[in-house]
Amino acid sequence: MASVVMGMSVGSLLLVIVFIILLTYCVVGVLFNKAVIGGCGLELIPNSMFWMSLPGHIKDGVLFFAGLFCRSRAETTIYRQL
């Protein structure tokens, strides 16, 4: 019973907090970019270049991680020697 607060589990409470923070980040970022920078369109999204490049970085990370297990033993030893 200690892990349940007002009918919500700890995990649910953490998810609600994360989504509130994310929503606040987006709203404040859009308002700031509109009012101070005077942006429009994609310029309104806070850190838009980061968010647009994120899927590519995730793909690179997954391919790198998968490559650690899919390489042959000879390729791994040659890589370690360099």
Results as ranks from 00 to 15, higher is better:
residue 82 L to Q: 14
residue 82 L to I: 14
residue 63 L to M: 12
residue 69 F to E: 05
residue 78 I to R: 12
residue 47 N to G: 06
residue 68 L to Q: 12
residue 13 L to S: 06
residue 33 N to F: 05
residue 64 F to M: 12
residue 31 L to E: 10
residue 19 F to V: 05
residue 34 K to E: 05
residue 74 A to M: 05
residue 76 T to Y: 00
residue 63 L to T: 08
residue 23 L to M: 07
residue 68 L to Y: 10
residue 38 G to S: 11
residue 81 Q to N: 06
residue 12 S to C: 12
residue 37 I to V: 14
residue 47 N to A: 08
residue 13 L to Q: 04
residue 26 C to Y: 07
residue 79 Y to Q: 14
residue 73 R to G: 10
residue 35 A to C: 13
residue 68 L to S: 11
residue 7 G to K: 02
residue 80 R to P: 11
residue 9 S to Y: 08
residue 51 W to D: 01
residue 45 I to N: 00
residue 62 V to N: 09
residue 62 V to E: 07
residue 70 C to K: 15
residue 60 D to F: 14
residue 38 G to Y: 01
residue 56 G to T: 12
residue 69 F to D: 07
residue 39 G to Q: 04
residue 33 N to W: 02
residue 5 V to L: 14
residue 41 G to L: 08
residue 28 V to C: 09
residue 23 L to F: 13
residue 74 A to S: 08
residue 27 V to W: 02
residue 16 V to S: 15
residue 39 G to Y: 00
residue 72 S to Q: 04
residue 39 G to L: 03
residue 17 I to F: 14
residue 41 G to W: 01
residue 65 F to Y: 15
residue 8 M to S: 10
residue 55 P to E: 03
residue 25 Y to S: 00
residue 71 R to T: 12
residue 55 P to M: 10
residue 5 V to G: 03
residue 69 F to H: 08
residue 51 W to Q: 00
residue 48 S to C: 12
residue 9 S to H: 11
residue 37 I to E: 08
residue 41 G to A: 03
residue 2 A to N: 08
residue 27 V to N: 11
residue 76 T to A: 06
residue 79 Y to R: 15
residue 53 S to R: 07
residue 79 Y to V: 11
residue 21 I to G: 10
residue 75 E to V: 01
residue 13 L to E: 11
residue 21 I to W: 02
residue 42 L to T: 03
residue 10 V to C: 01
residue 30 V to D: 04
residue 24 T to F: 05
residue 42 L to Q: 04
residue 11 G to Q: 14
residue 18 V to P: 08
residue 26 C to T: 03
residue 15 L to I: 07
residue 24 T to W: 04
residue 23 L to Q: 06
residue 10 V to G: 02
residue 26 C to S: 06
residue 81 Q to F: 02
residue 44 L to T: 02
residue 17 I to A: 15
residue 5 V to W: 15
residue 82 L to M: 15
residue 70 C to P: 00
residue 74 A to T: 05
residue 81 Q to H: 05
residue 73 R to L: 07
residue 62 V to C: 10
residue 64 F to C: 09
residue 66 A to D: 09
residue 46 P to V: 03
residue 53 S to H: 08
residue 56 G to A: 09
residue 61 G to Q: 07
residue 12 S to L: 13
residue 39 G to C: 03
residue 14 L to F: 15
residue 21 I to P: 04
residue 43 E to A: 02
residue 28 V to L: 09
residue 9 S to Q: 09
residue 10 V to R: 04
